[in-house]
Simulated scan of single mutants.
Amino acid sequence: MNVVIEANGLTKSYGAKTVVNKVDLQVEKGEIYGFLGRNGAGKSTFMNMITGITQPSAGSFRLLNESSLEKVKHRIGVLPDYSMFYDSLTAVGHLKYFAKLNGCRASTKRCETVLERVGLLEDGYKKAGRFSFGMKKKLGIAQAIIHDPELIFLDEPTSGVDAESALYIHKLLIDLQKEGKTIFMTSHNLYEIEKMCTRIAIMKNGSILKEGTIDELRKHFMSNISVQIRHSDIPDQHFGLINGFLESAGEQLEYRGHEISIIVNSEEKIPAIVRVLTNCKVGIYRIHVDEPSLEEIFLDDTEKSSVSSI
């Protein structure tokens, strides 16, 4: 396992208020790792600590197997939750400047290539003072990748941009992953996290509630799976057997003409139901399973946490 981000007990407090609370985390090379949570959950503070913008109150971290940021700063790229640009500098001028800060020189051609990747090529020689918020966000992503870093940190990369630009950025991040980059991104946009990330951590009140792949999170939270089965006639001699099995397999069992509706607490029960029906000479025409979206998982877990904390 090639771990490129490792945090151990990372904590940040401001006086009596703990913003990030003893977070342990590992991210492997080549992942798009999503840090999901509502505004104020502690996502940006965590990222600011591991990128050197702010100092931890406790705990430790390593990036690219190094505990010293000085040794790896030229190998990482960062889009913070705010980006400051010089109004009088063009986009190309900014990229040359940021590349130099990271210890490399960027040719005009390299700058234009990166601006094209983020959808800003036509505005490459405009001064940043004329840029909209969304354009500055794209320029912020461009400055994070101008020096071709191995590890890229992006704080809310699509917040404030239009839908078309967001799709452009999504494609860019997937392309960067295919090129072998590792991406750590924060977001409160459930759709983009679900669409792109290989693994996700759900954060609330400074702590990680749950971490895993989309499928792992769904499996963890899928306690009420709604199943509808469209079927042929049920033979009279087999109805008792089928009904008894279904009553033991789930809850809220309903027969509506040629459709069975049932709630089960595990997806493993679905193939068992199908086997019983087919063994009893019932034809299966269609099966519809309602899986929880990431939003339902997220809201369900945060609501439970809120209730348990009262």
Rank of each mutant, 00 (worst) to 15 (best):
G9V: 10
T11A: 15
S13R: 10
Y14R: 02
G15S: 01
A16F: 09
T18L: 08
V19W: 11
N21E: 12
L25N: 09
Q26T: 10
E28Q: 05
G30V: 08
E31V: 05
F35S: 06
G40C: 06
A41T: 01
K43D: 12
M47P: 11
N48F: 05
I50A: 10
I53K: 08
I53V: 14
F61G: 05
F61W: 05
L64C: 04
L69V: 08
L69H: 09
V72E: 09
R75C: 07
L79E: 02
F85S: 09
D87Q: 14
L89F: 15
L89M: 15
T90G: 08
T90L: 09
L95C: 06
K96N: 05
F98D: 02
K100V: 02
K100S: 12
N102I: 01
S107F: 06
S107T: 14
T108E: 06
K109W: 00
E112F: 02
V114M: 05
V114T: 05
L115Q: 02
E116F: 03
D123S: 12
K126W: 00
A128C: 15
K137T: 15
Q143D: 08
F153R: 12
F153M: 13
L154N: 08
T158I: 11
S159F: 11
G160N: 11
D162W: 00
A163F: 04
S165K: 00
E179A: 15
I183P: 10
F184Y: 08
T186E: 13
H188L: 04
E216S: 06
M222P: 03
M222T: 10
M222G: 07
N224C: 06
S226Q: 13
I229W: 05
I229P: 07
H231K: 04
S232L: 13
S232W: 11
Q237N: 15
H238V: 00
F239E: 05
G244T: 10
F245D: 03
S248H: 13
Q252M: 01
Y255G: 04
I260G: 00
N265W: 00
E268S: 12
K281D: 04
I284W: 13
R286V: 14
I287S: 07
I287F: 07
H288W: 13
D290G: 11
S293K: 07
D301M: 14
S309W: 12
